[in-house]
Each structure stands twice: as C-alpha cells, then as structure tokens.
Design a binder for these strands. Structure first.
Lengths: 239, 239
DNA sequence: GCAGGACTGTCAACTTGCAGACATTTTCCG
DNA sequence: CGGAAAATGTCTGCAAGTTGACAGTCCTGC
C-alpha cells in the first residue's frame, strides 16, 4: 500500500503448481492511464494482480475531494475483500499510468479458493496485514499532526520505492504536494507549509514533483520522540 | 465491534465437528472487571472466544487518552490477527465486566489451522469484515463531523445492542458520554454539546449512563443527506 | 521560444474541536 | 440520610487545519 514496503499479494507465496493454476485461470486486461479497475459501490466481479503499472486506491469524500488510500504496483493484488464477502466495493481503483492486469473472475476465484486451501491461508496473511495497516493508519490520523504524518509518509515511501542517488540522497518521484495531501487527508497548502519546515530543517530537498530525502533517520525523529513518550506499555489492572 | 451488528467470530460458522475440536483445545479463563486479556506490544500467545462478559479493545494515545475501538461480547472472538502473522499485539484488550473466555493457545491454534482448511476460510470472512470495518471507520473519522459520527454511532449501537422499551424508545445502557467520546476520538465536552443538540431535536433522551433513542431514522438523517450528496458514484475516465 | 498548464509559496478569515476550569446533578453505598 | 464519586452542562481561550484567493515558478508541447 502507498508504495510502502509490506505484504501486498496472496499469490506470490503460493506453491508453484497452485500459482500456475491461478495464472492459468486469469485473463489479461490492459488499462490506459486514468482508466478504472473498479468503482465504489460496484459488484465485485473479479480480483486482480498487477503485472505492470500502478493503481491508485482512493475514494471521494463529501466535497468531491479524493482521499488516496494507497498506490499498488507490479506484483500486488487488488480486490480480494470483495471476493470473500461479495459485498460492493468500498473504494475506487484507477490506473495512474498505462497498466496491465491479470484478471481472476469471481467464479474462477471461488473454484480455486475451494480446491486449494493454501489460497485461503495466504489470503489470511494478506488480510491480517491489511487489518494492521488500516488500524495503524486510523490511529496515526488521530494521534499525529499533519507534519508528523507527512514526515512518516515520506520516510516510508523512501524505504519502499525510493531511488538512492550517488550523493546519498533518496529520490522520490511522481510525488506532488497535492498527491501527498490526498494521502494524508489534508490540503495542498498545509502540506506545502510543512514541507518547507522539513526543508528548512535540512531533512530533504524538493523540486517540482520530486523529493530528495537527505536524512531518513531525521525524518522519523519527531515521531520517535512521540513514540518514546507513549511507549509506556499499559498494565491492567493499574497498580 | 462496538457492540454493533456484524461478523465477530470465526468459530460460529464452522462445521460442528471442527467447532468441537476447537473448543476441545481451549482452556477456560476467568477475568475480573478491569483485568487485561492482552496488552499493546505483547507477544500473541493465544486467541480468545468470549463466553460471557464484555471486552473492550482500545489503545492509549499520546496524552494518555484511551481511544476505544470496539467492545466485544459473548460469542465474539479476539486476537486472531496475532495468530496469523505472529506480530506483537497492536492494541490492548480489557474486560469491562467480570468475564469468562475460552483460550486457544498458539500451538493449538496452529495445529487446528493446519489440519482444518475451513478455519482459514472462516478467518477470511472475519478478516474481510474487519478490513471493511476499519476502512469505514477511518473514512468516517475524516469525512464526518463529531456530531455526525455521534449520531451514527448511537444509531448503530441501537440496532446492535439496544433494548426496545414499551413506549417505543430504544434503551442503550452503560453508555456514558465519556465512553462515547473515547469511541469517537473526541472529548467528553464536545460529546455533551452534540448530545444536547440531538436531544433538543427530539431524537433522543438521556439519563446518566443511559440513552433512550426516540427516532432511529432521524438519527441517521443528517448522515443520509450527506451520503445522498456524495452518492454520485464516480466513473472513470471522467466524461 | 513561448504560451498554457501544472506545481508551488503565502496570506487572511473562518471553523472545528481541544484544554482546562468550574458549577450542577445524579447515583452509589455505608 | 448524607457524603463521596461519577456523570453532565457550559464557558473561555487556543491550536490546527480549511477555504479561497493570488502570485510566482517550472515544465511541456506545438
């Protein structure tokens, strides 16, 4: 999610023959940039494996503002939750660049799911990861300020998809302040302000759609401080 | 979760013989009110099935404030995510009243999990539900005001564990404004204010730790309006 | 090479919700 | 009954972030 490190596939960990069976049941679909994989409220008719490209998961809030939940890439899977519970999609997935997906139709998924218990177990791992991810996400939204969340997001993105440069900096591409604002649940203006603050602190350098991270540890610093302060693991009953 | 209607168990849906095997592997544990089932950061050594009582899931934010994520009851399951990924607990679970749990130790869980594929499938259903739940929860926190979230929470709680009264009202017990504030991620004062607003609107009646819902549909009204406004399912590409 | 578009910096007015303080009211229990 | 604890109503700042507006800056395509 979010181009972050983590578990994003239930296929990769399958034993080779099962994996083969899965791909054998898939059909290929090409998407142009901006084309939707699925949209909010639609019936879940298939799940997908990204072969090439990037897919943004988001939804539209009241004022028409888009809140990005994550961006998935080559090798990642989308749309499994709908396969399991059959409920309407709860967000929208759109290709942000020309992409190619493997499509596994619901009926085929059901057949494979019923006949290969490994699939259910891999899905457990993926869903457990997602539960943790969303939980943490909600937690942070509540507990951390916009600036702290921005620093964290940048650090994670650097770990995940950052491109190390010769001078030691880590390049983050295709990362406008507007896109960041959407991921953080804030406004472009607020992000601009916080970004300047980080820049003034010497932690990074920006350039139209790109961010060069200079001090990864430093970016996590303000958060560590906070974590340190609340790291008092509660005991119950108190005393 | 939250005393809401929904799927909270991976055991209930199992075929009878498997269910028997699960309970046979469990041991019983009694908890006094205020005693912890597990705490943030601890190693996941078991998962639990609530036999009797109530367990509150929460974590402690920076300022020592507790943010309640849900309250589970008789028949519900806790701690499965840790069984699957083995990572430390990401929240704390405490009995809010004298309770009795069935404890399924990690080793026993693993054994059953490996030998009964139905368990993985039931877990997927539960985890899929949790993913949706947390996703929606995060969504609402961002998009809805405290008052809207309060109305929603009350309506859902009424559906879930409300006790219909002779006069048509629905009684919600053990529901102080402080507890509500913790669930909503707000302060007691703000809840008090919003509660008064709802009371003035004739939607409910309150009395120290109790809420009598008078107009369930009316409580959802302000939200419905908002939903209606944003129910424009986005199409991609636009035009 | 230059015009239009996308991205960025900054400001002021406003809104929501928080912190802390304080007064009341109700319940609990000896 | 009577006191203490718990729950509630209300107020005054205060802080974070939004909205809307506007001006600069960079980049891209014709």
């Amino acid at each position: 999610m979010l181009g972050l490190p983590g578990l994003h596939s239930w296929v990769a960990g399958l034993p080779e023959p099962v994996k083969k069976a899965v791909f054998a049941a898939c059909s290929r679909r090409k998407l142009a940039a901006g084309e939707a994989v699925y949209t909010l409220g639609s019936k879940p008719e298939a799940c997908y494996i990204i072969e090439r490209g990037r897919v943004r998961i988001f939804n539209v809030s009241d004022s028409g503002r888009e809140v990005t939940l994550g961006e998935l890439r080559s090798g990642d899977c989308i749309g499994e939750v709908g396969m399991i519970d059959g409920m309407p999609r709860f967000n929208t997935a759109v290709a942000t660049e020309a992409s190619e997906l493997q499509v596994l139709a619901r009926a085929d998924f059901d057949r494979l799911y019923a006949s290969h218990p490994e699939i259910a177990r891999e899905l457990n791992r993926l869903l457990a990861y997602r539960v943790r991810f969303f939980y943490m996400h909600a937690e942070e939204s509540r507990a951390l300020s916009l600036g702290q969340r921005l620093a964290r997001l940048l650090a994670r993105t650097a770990y995940g998809v950052g491109i190390p440069q010769d001078n030691g900096e880590i390049l983050l591409e295709t990362l406008s302040q507007e896109a960041l604002a959407n991921m953080l649940g804030g406004t472009r203006q607020a992000v601009s302000q916080e970004m300047k603050r980080l820049e003034r602190a010497g932690l990074l350098r920006t350039s139209y759609g790109k961010v060069y991270v200079r001090d990864l540890a430093g970016l996590l610093q303000p958060v560590e401080d906070l974590i340190g302060a609340e790291a008092v693991v509660p005991t119950y009953p108190p005393e």
